[in-house]
Design a protein around this nucleic acid. Structure first.
Lengths: 144, 144
DNA sequence: CGTGGCATTAGAATAGTTCTAAAATTGATC
DNA sequence: GATCAATTTTAGAACTATTCTAATGCCACG
């Protein structure tokens, strides 16, 4: 067994665990999707993910990409980021952080958490509990 | 001249000024849209606005609603709020403030500004300038 | 094996938004 | 007022991201 296959085996276990821990049934498609998605911290659209997954040789349909992203989001494995009506990103990094969006380039850049505010229970509307706090700071390239 | 028509005349001037100040050419449709939109601080979708405007007797097409909202947003008269891929709200209140979104009811609720963070120029990605900071805190109704 | 229940699929349907090309309106100028 | 160029508005088609549908596939378990 080479190091490569050893690493692959390790990652497979890790990814499987990640899903199982959240009560998600592991299937071939879900693993294929998770392998690509969780390979690193990244921001992907459903379409980009579909292409990347199918490039690995796996054969996964568009509907499954959406089903799976929806499931992962519900279980807290990915975060949805709504930039505009035509741009929904899925963020494989679910640690507490936020984003800068460069309107000129379309880049989505992570923001250090210390810049984000804390919302205390007492700050929230009466009778509600916080689910997520999403901050998008839109920036433009500085004019010369 | 009754008080009512007097008030209407006053409002018309105010709305016209608001557009003209931003270099927006006033037309009948733009005024009809602005009258409804700026009557009070509110969060409307393009569709809701279209219905409200046409209920006043004005006849404005869907395309014009979108054109005008785009123009107003570009000129800083309204703020776009992206809640999900299927929900873009236009906020007639452009003062610095942010939002709570109740995932259970769909309500969008204003957040006091003091809860929002300040983003200093030094915090932003290199070579960029801030355009807007959008914060949406998603909340759910507290379980009994 | 066979059955029940979920997962996956291709493609159709939906819905919000943008585009198109023609008609209408505008302010400026005579 | 009439004319002109430029801009705005319009109806409806086109587009696109996402969701739905109904059929098929895949397991686990008895």
């Amino acid at each position: 067994m080479t190091d490569l296959t050893h690493n692959e085996a390790l990652q497979k276990t890790t990814v499987d665990q990640r899903l199982t821990e959240r009560g998600i049934f592991v299937t071939a498609q879900r693993r294929a999707i998770a392998d690509v998605l969780f390979a690193r911290n990244q921001h992907l659209t459903a379409d980009q993910l579909l292409m990347l997954v199918n490039e690995t040789g796996a054969k996964v349909s568009k509907a499954t990409i959406y089903n799976t992203l929806g499931l992962f989001a519900e279980k807290g494995l990915v975060r949805e980021i709504h930039i505009s009506s035509a741009k929904t990103f899925y963020d494989s990094n679910t640690s507490r952080h936020h984003h800068f969006y460069n309107m000129d380039t379309g880049d989505l850049i992570d923001m250090k958490e210390r810049l984000a505010p804390l919302f205390l229970q007492s700050d929230l509307p009466d009778g509600t509990v916080m689910e997520t706090a999403d901050i998008v700071v839109r920036v433009r390239n500085q004019k010369p």
